[in-house]
Amino acid sequence: MSRLAQLAPLISALNHRLGAFFISYLALLMAFILLYEIIARYLFSAPTIWAPELAQLLFGAYVMLSGGYLLAHKGHVNVDLIYNRFSPRGRAAVNLLTSFLFFAFLSVLLLEGWTMARESVAMLETSSSAWNPPIWPLKLTIPLGATLILLQGLADTLVDLDVLFNGPAIEEHGNDA
């Protein structure tokens, strides 16, 4: 089991690098686009037709592509009242018992997202706004983001299996969050 668990840090590193990139640079890009729109609209009375929609499209990509990063850093919403009282092995057992919900949801998201993205790419789908940008690239982020989250979930499951059967690698001292 330990050999499989050695894949977990590689997957987490991938999600960390991609997530840090998308979280930092896409957020910065969205901020600049919206700042440009505010300046154009209120200082020059020349609003754009593209800035709000582009920021919205980038935000969709931001949300989809940063999910694996959030999961790797335990950033998703979690109810910890009882869970944190368990030992590391107990938490690993709970994670494994509930992981079927995670994998079922992500499998549906991946399959349906892939179908939606494939159809969107096939017709080179655009929005129906005045600006009319292509939205098929955004739809491609759905299966890509689902794959990143699924990979991180697999990595976490491998670690949980390793903890359950071999015990924690290092003793925990307090809470990371």
Rank of each mutant, 00 (worst) to 15 (best):
M64E: 01
A130L: 09
R89Y: 06
L109C: 08
S129W: 06
V94I: 12
T98D: 04
S120I: 03
V108P: 07
L124F: 14
T115W: 08
E112D: 09
L81W: 15
N95P: 00
A93P: 00
M116K: 12
H76D: 11
L71S: 07
L110Q: 03
A122G: 03
A122L: 09
S99P: 08
S127P: 08
L70T: 14
V79I: 14
G67Y: 11
L81R: 08
L124Q: 12
F59G: 09
L124G: 03
L101I: 15
A93K: 09
Y62F: 15
S107A: 13
T98Q: 04
F100K: 09
Y83R: 00
G75A: 10
Y69N: 02
N84F: 10
I82S: 05
V108Y: 09
G60K: 00
H73I: 13
V94P: 01
S66H: 04
R118V: 09
L97E: 05
Y69K: 04
E112P: 05
A122H: 10
T126L: 00
M116H: 11
S128N: 14
M64G: 03
L71P: 01
R85Y: 10
K74Y: 15
E125R: 11
S66K: 04
F86V: 07
R89I: 12
P88C: 12
G113C: 08
F105V: 13
R85S: 03
S66W: 01
S120F: 03
G113K: 02
L106P: 05
G75Q: 10
H76C: 10
L70N: 03
P88L: 13
A93C: 05
V63I: 15
F102T: 12
L70R: 03
G113P: 01
E112Y: 13
G60Y: 10
L70Q: 05
A130G: 08
A61R: 01
L70F: 14
G60V: 10
G113A: 08
L97M: 11
S99K: 07
Y69G: 03
L97K: 06
L124H: 12
L109S: 05
N84Y: 11
V63W: 10
A104C: 10
A104P: 05
F100S: 13
S87L: 08
L111M: 11
Y69L: 09
S107C: 06
Y83Q: 02
S107M: 08
L124W: 15
A104H: 01
R91E: 07
G90A: 07
L111V: 12
L110R: 05
L71K: 04
W114P: 01
G90C: 01
A92G: 02
T98N: 09
F86H: 12
L96Y: 04
E112K: 13
L65F: 02
A104N: 00
S87R: 04
R118Q: 08
P88H: 13
L71H: 07
V108C: 07
F102M: 09
W114C: 06
V63F: 15
R89H: 05
L101G: 14
L124D: 00
N95G: 13
S128G: 15
I82T: 11
V77A: 09
A117Y: 03
V77D: 13
T126Q: 10
F86A: 06
T98P: 00
A122E: 09
S66Y: 05
S120D: 00
H76A: 14
S99D: 07
